[in-house]
């Protein structure tokens, strides 16, 4: 039970290390880095590799942004498995990510209650 905390920490940390390498070595902006990681998550799921990673690392794999690509791809592929090519399309309209909905909702709430502060 507790080993999942260790794997979550290590795997989550390592995904962030990849992100930092893209920042500092490849000199990419945060936006570019995040897009690359999302696409990577999506491709890994295409090869069926991301779900085992989630089984191994729990939140270490579901919390980094890569899981966003995985969630969308997984939904699309599940539909495609059921309905073939049409499923790829319909799947795209069904899949959602709790990350987006939560970000929209909390973003809206924050805009009501908070103001930006410029202090260090």
């Amino acid at each position: 039970m507790l080993s999942i905390f260790v794997t979550a920490f290590v795997v989550g940390g390592l995904i962030c290390v990849i992100g930092q390498l893209l920042f500092d070595v490849a000199n990419l902006t945060p936006a570019h880095t995040l897009c690359i990681l999302v696409v990577a998550g999506s491709i890994l799921d295409g090869f069926g590799l991301y779900e085992p990673l989630i089984d191994f690392a729990g939140a270490g794999a579901t919390v980094p942004i890569t899981s966003f690509g995985n969630a969308l791809t997984h939904g699309a592929m599940a539909e495609a498995e059921k309905h073939g090519f049409v499923g790829v399309l319909t799947g795209m309209f069904e899949v959602t990510s709790s990350g987006i909905s939560a970000a929209i909702l909390f973003g809206f709430i924050a805009s009501v209650i908070f103001r930006p502060k410029g202090k260090v």
Binding site: P30, P116, K117, G118, V120
Partner: peptide
């Protein structure tokens, strides 16, 4: 004015981005 300039040229003030040592305030 920091906030007004920052939001126009870079990111929203509260956005977390790691500023390098060469960055200026």
């Amino acid at each position: 004015q920091h906030n007004a300039v920052e939001r126009q040229f870079r990111y929203p003030v509260e956005y977390g981005s790691q500023k390098p040592e060469t960055a200026q305030w």
